[in-house]
Design a binder for these strands. Structure first.
Lengths: 228, 228
DNA sequence: TTAATTTGTTAGTCATGGCTAACTTTTTTA
DNA sequence: TAAAAAAGTTAGCCATGACTAACAAATTAA
């Protein structure tokens, strides 16, 4: 446990910054995360970010040298992981018990993840019988803070003739999520790559006995496990 | 429905004030609610309250004349009722599904009631099969905003020999709630008034084949239905 | 009915967390 | 390697919602 017990006195804003920084560091493509990237990700000005980073450094959740790149301390990471755990558990609850669809959960989970109660989230976890994955296929961190990520294979990285199973989708865009469910894809859907068109990078895929053409951008946001 | 659709753009603070004002107006003892009473109830300074009331008047949720008493507009009432609905549904969920006890729910429900999502709360209601009462015995307002209160008969108003059933408890104090459950009282418990001691206003009651002595203050916070 | 008390209001301050504009440092690229 | 671009920082502003201190109005009591 942390030496600060459960005195988690962070504001919603502080939590947002820590979680965003964690996601850029751990799940992002950029090797280094700087002030402006974080600002862009959170859709706030670089000045606001700079200001908040100062505060988070003072509280020892963030480390960085002047004009240098940002990193999280262990305590900072731990807070971020707890937020991600809360977010994913709520998403799971909303989808599995309250009839929410993929594209509806994110906004509400963003609010619910800031509710402060250890018991609430651990009981919710138990109530759902300790789910391993959220509705988008992402792993849910455990109560003791184990964070791991699935090896991500993009649908766009496969070759003609390959067969795979849908493991997860990027939950960054509501429109994308709507589109995915509208065409009928769900977790575990079996997908076969019929054709990759060099001309425009579009991909013809088959699933549920239908054939669809999807763009490269679409396929970049769909993560799969190759099975053939 | 309101003419503002669902554009419920109130801050947490604004919501807190509206709900508090509603509770003082509808459930409180005072015939008139003024600025200072509201301030005391919310544990903020009269100046803060005055400031917020100005804003809520500008937004047409509150009406009052200068130096006059406060009242809510229909829109203000409607917002307060929706908050109470959310609060009580969450309390019900926490108690019935997540193993929370009477004294634990309030603090967490205070946070959950500010989560903004019409679908969330209506689905939660459906998930629990439209409960009528919250864990403390209070009626839960319906989705279309019907607010009603149980006729409140205080345990302290009964006479020796009367028999009653526990209908609701005042949920204003954690310590009181803890005490109620520790001695073994639950909703629907049958209680018999054994003796009322004039000397110190204490009351001897019998329930579950045990006899307990409770204070007048305790009995003022326990609401019952007389059955004999 | 005046004086005391309570209640309500205003002015001015503070912290949080946004913002823009201007500036500095670092990195890129020509 | 010097100029341009990008990234980071600082100063100063704004809104929100707290606060205290001082003051005004209304109510209660003498």
């Amino acid at each position: 446990m942390t030496n600060k017990l459960n005195s988690n006195n962070l504001t919603k804003s502080e939590e947002d910054y820590l979680k965003a920084l964690f996601q850029l560091l751990v799940e992002g493509d950029s090797p280094k995360v700087g002030n402006n990237l974080l600002a862009e990700y959170l859709k706030v000005s670089p000045a606001s970010t700079n200001n908040m980073i100062k505060k988070l450094k003072a509280k020892e959740y963030v480390v960085s040298e002047k004009y240098g790149k940002l990193d999280l301390t262990d305590e900072g990471k731990s807070i971020a992981v707890r937020l991600i755990r809360k977010h994913r558990l709520w998403e799971t609850f909303l989808c599995n018990y309250l009839n929410f669809t993929w594209d509806e959960v994110h906004e509400v989970a963003e609010q619910l993840e800031h509710v402060k109660s250890r018991k609430l989230i651990d009981e919710l976890d138990r109530f759902m019988d300790f789910p391993k994955k959220d509705p988008h296929g992402e792993l849910i961190p455990s109560a003791d803070g184990d964070y791991s990520i699935l090896p991500k294979v993009m649908l766009s990285s496969l070759l003609e003739g390959d067969v795979c199973q849908l493991e997860a989708v990027n939950d960054g865009s509501v429109n994308f999520l709507k589109y995915v469910s509208e065409i009928g894809l769900v977790l575990s859907s079996e997908i076969k790559i019929i054709e990759i068109r060099e001309f425009d990078n579009s991909i013809r895929i088959e699933f549920n006995n239908v054939i669809e053409t999807v763009t490269r951008k679409f396929a970049d946001n769909v993560f799969v496990k190759k099975i053939l």
